[in-house]
Amino acid sequence: SQHQEELPPPPLPPGWEEKVDNLGRTYYVNHNNRTTQWHRPSLMDVSSE
């Protein structure tokens, strides 16, 4: 059986914070524009500005 090492997730872009809601779900807060989202932001998402 193949065992895959879990890679650590990439660092969050500046201004982002990973949080967990009261149901144990992980979400991400963008403090730059005060938004939240479910999927993890990547540095590539942000660098397109």
Rank of each mutant, 00 (worst) to 15 (best):
S1G: 02
S1V: 02
S1M: 15
S1Y: 09
S1E: 02
S1A: 03
S1L: 01
Q2D: 09
Q2L: 02
Q2E: 02
Q2Y: 13
Q2M: 08
Q2C: 00
Q2T: 08
Q2V: 04
H3T: 05
H3N: 09
H3F: 09
H3R: 01
H3C: 05
Q4E: 01
Q4H: 13
Q4G: 00
Q4A: 05
Q4I: 06
Q4D: 08
E5A: 00
E5R: 15
E6K: 12
E6S: 08
E6Q: 10
E6T: 10
E6D: 07
L7E: 02
L7H: 08
L7R: 12
L7T: 07
L7N: 12
L7D: 14
L7F: 14
P8T: 15
P8A: 11
P8Y: 03
P8N: 14
P9Y: 04
P9W: 02
P9M: 15
P9V: 13
P9G: 10
P10N: 06
P10F: 04
P10M: 13
P10R: 13
P10T: 07
P10I: 10
P11T: 09
P11F: 03
P11G: 11
P11V: 13
P11Y: 05
P11D: 12
L12S: 07
L12P: 00
L12W: 13
L12A: 10
P13Q: 06
P13C: 04
P13R: 09
P13Y: 03
P13G: 07
P14M: 13
P14R: 15
P14V: 12
P14A: 13
P14L: 14
G15Y: 11
G15M: 11
G15K: 09
G15V: 05
W16G: 03
W16Y: 03
W16D: 01
W16F: 13
W16E: 05
W16P: 00
W16S: 03
E17F: 04
E17S: 08
E17G: 05
E17W: 01
E17K: 08
E17Q: 10
E17R: 04
E17M: 08
E18H: 06
E18S: 09
E18N: 06
E18Y: 05
E18I: 09
E18L: 05
E18W: 03
K19G: 02
K19N: 12
K19S: 04
K19P: 00
K19Y: 05
K19R: 06
K19I: 07
V20C: 10
V20F: 11
V20K: 10
V20G: 03
V20L: 09
V20A: 13
V20Y: 06
V20Q: 13
D21Q: 01
D21F: 00
D21R: 00
D21A: 03
D21T: 11
D21H: 01
D21I: 00
D21V: 00
N22V: 06
N22R: 12
N22I: 09
N22M: 09
N22C: 08
N22P: 12
L23A: 15
L23D: 13
L23K: 15
L23N: 12
L23Y: 08
L23F: 14
L23V: 11
L23W: 11
L23C: 13
L23M: 10
L23R: 14
G24V: 00
G24D: 08
G24H: 07
G24F: 03
G24N: 14
G24I: 00
R25W: 03
R25C: 14
R25D: 14
R25T: 12
R25A: 14
T26R: 09
T26Q: 06
T26F: 04
T26H: 04
T26K: 15
T26G: 04
T26S: 14
T26M: 09
T26I: 11
Y27K: 05
Y27W: 05
Y28V: 01
Y28H: 01
Y28Q: 01
Y28A: 01
Y28T: 01
Y28K: 01
Y28L: 01
Y28S: 01
V29W: 07
V29S: 04
V29I: 04
V29A: 09
N30P: 03
N30G: 04
N30F: 02
N30T: 03
N30M: 03
N30W: 01
N30Y: 04
H31A: 10
H31S: 11
H31R: 13
H31Q: 06
H31T: 10
H31L: 11
H31M: 13
H31P: 10
H31E: 12
N32D: 13
N32T: 09
N32R: 07
N32H: 12
N32Y: 07
N33K: 08
N33G: 15
N33S: 14
N33H: 11
N33D: 08
N33P: 08
N33A: 13
N33T: 15
N33R: 06
R34E: 08
R34N: 14
R34G: 13
R34M: 06
R34T: 10
R34I: 05
T35N: 06
T35F: 12
T35M: 08
T35Q: 06
T35I: 09
T36Y: 03
T36M: 05
T36P: 03
T36F: 02
Q37P: 00
Q37G: 02
Q37I: 04
Q37W: 03
W38A: 11
W38T: 11
W38K: 11
W38F: 11
W38N: 03
W38I: 07
W38G: 06
H39S: 15
H39V: 11
H39R: 12
H39A: 14
H39G: 10
H39K: 15
H39C: 11
R40N: 10
R40S: 08
R40C: 02
R40W: 04
R40I: 01
R40D: 02
R40Y: 03
P41C: 00
P41G: 01
P41D: 01
P41L: 00
P41N: 00
P41T: 00
P41R: 00
P41K: 02
S42H: 05
S42N: 15
S42P: 13
S42V: 12
L43A: 13
L43C: 14
L43D: 12
L43H: 10
L43Y: 11
L43G: 09
L43E: 07
M44L: 12
M44C: 11
M44Y: 07
M44F: 10
M44E: 11
M44N: 12
M44T: 12
D45T: 14
D45V: 08
D45E: 14
D45H: 15
D45P: 15
D45S: 11
D45R: 09
D45C: 04
D45N: 14
V46S: 14
V46F: 11
V46L: 14
V46K: 09
V46N: 12
S47V: 08
S47E: 11
S47M: 05
S47D: 12
S47T: 11
S47G: 10
S47N: 15
S48D: 03
S48I: 15
S48W: 03
S48G: 11
S48R: 13
E49R: 00
E49P: 15
E49S: 03
E49D: 04
E49W: 00
